[in-house]
Design a protein around this nucleic acid. Structure first.
Lengths: 243, 243
DNA sequence: CGTCATCTTGAGGAGTGTCAATAACTGTGG
DNA sequence: CCACAGTTATTGACACTCCTCAAGATGACG
């Protein structure tokens, strides 16, 4: 029997809280199970809860008016699924959330969130930090997409993936399909295919779904140079927590 | 003598608070004056404060490694200038903030913010809402940039501008230069110039800096359809507060 | 072993960035 | 008030990147 609450306890939104506080907060969570390719919620559903992922992978997506589906994020254990509209008084989900694998979640109500933000100052600060990190990630991605070629974005993405999943750079399998990666990067499948051979110039070799990373220069050169002038770059820390 | 604190009191982060609370919070603000084209802070400066704009216009920008400057946002009275890294323990600014016109601000310290988040639950909720709206704006813009042509983005932008500044659609002057608009939209000046004539098909005519908007179809069709399935679209409300 | 989804490869085209030249505007000092 | 310099805006030619459509190739799975 896996202790899902123990996993959830490691989520960043509980950081710095006492054991009692964590347990008290977690007591209100409702355990939910989903099979793969199930919708956790649809765009347009009434927004009632936030979730903490205990196991599995969840895709956050939106389908545009032209029928195309854009993947906004791919989340795994200890990440929270929290539509940022939850802080508005009465709204609907802006996204779809679909399980990629089998998934276990803890569900918390909107009211639980508001109550605990008001009464627990430390918790409020954690949420503000979480939201601000999300903010930074979105901004950074927008910036990357504007200023880098597809090959560069992809190199960056693979290196982040390797760090986030703690995979062996000397050789690992892609944790999810190229189709999902393309959608996540906001490009077409064909464009992704064509970018793969170009990665050799960044010290990355991809054959099928097998990846070998010889250098992390993209992250060193690009991400860090754009995030801070000082040497103490916190982006790697943040990346690990946000994937 | 203008009462700058009265203007600041109207900022969204104080919403729902009592008069006493507002006054107590505002008591800690330090009034700052800047001439036009002055830096409020540079990318890399130690992050110490947040600001509320009392009058004037401020450009938030970042200069990329290739020396190009990207405008991330343009802010005016009652907006807050708050680098989202303020919620991290010890960091530096990620952006530059430069005054476009003469500017008056109220400055509040990072510690002031943390203390009041902890002790005033309603204030914490306001900040979470503010941050989540920022989040939504960035996401929406990224999405627009990916799915719309420059002419569409521009039409959208001008219509938002008109609403945000409460300008007369039948004829108004651009509140800031085309160069700044291009930078704000993440495009080249030349591309902006070439997009202007195309706006006629969206019911917008631009000659020099004079703009006439005959219909708001872009906002109706594009923005609202992408933000919510339900009829009660809150984006106009949000737009007005975020410009 | 056949079916369906995923992935790869090719050819063509639309849109935006780049470079360069010129025009319009702004502000300054004489 | 004008002359000048510096910025901002427009227009043209061209290159490059990515998207689209189309056809195969590969792989997963019943």
């Amino acid at each position: 029997m896996i202790d899902y609450k123990l996993i959830a306890k490691g989520s960043s939104i509980f950081r710095g809280l006492s054991e009692e506080e964590k347990n008290s907060l977690l007591r209100d969570g409702k355990l939910r199970h989903f099979n793969k390719k199930e919708f956790l919620f649809h765009h347009g559903d009434k927004l009632m809860s936030l979730f903490i992922i205990c196991s599995g992978t969840v895709k956050i997506s939106r389908s545009s008016s032209e029928g195309k589906e854009k993947t906004l994020n791919v989340l795994t254990a200890q990440n929270i699924i929290c539509d940022s509209r939850i802080y508005e008084s009465k709204t609907v989900h802006q996204y779809n959330a679909v399980s990629v694998t089998d998934v276990v979640l803890l569900e918390f109500s909107k009211d639980w969130l508001r109550e605990n933000v008001k009464s627990k100052g430390e918790f409020a600060l954690n949420l503000l930090l979480e939201l601000s990190l999300q903010n930074q990630r979105i901004e950074l991605e927008a910036e990357h997409k504007a200023s880098m070629s597809v090959a560069q974005s992809l190199a960056c993405f693979l290196q982040e993936l390797c760090l986030a999943f703690k995979l062996d750079p000397k050789g690992f399998e892609l944790p999810y399909s190229k189709k999902l990666i393309a959608s996540r990067l906001g490009i077409e499948n064909e464009t992704l295919s064509r970018a793969l051979p170009k990665l050799e110039s960044y010290g990355i070799k991809v054959e099928g779904s097998h990846v070998i990373i010889n250098s992390f220069e993209m992250i060193e050169d690009k991400v860090c140079s754009s995030c801070s002038i000082e040497g103490d770059c916190s982006i790697h820390e943040n990346l690990k927590r946000q994937f």
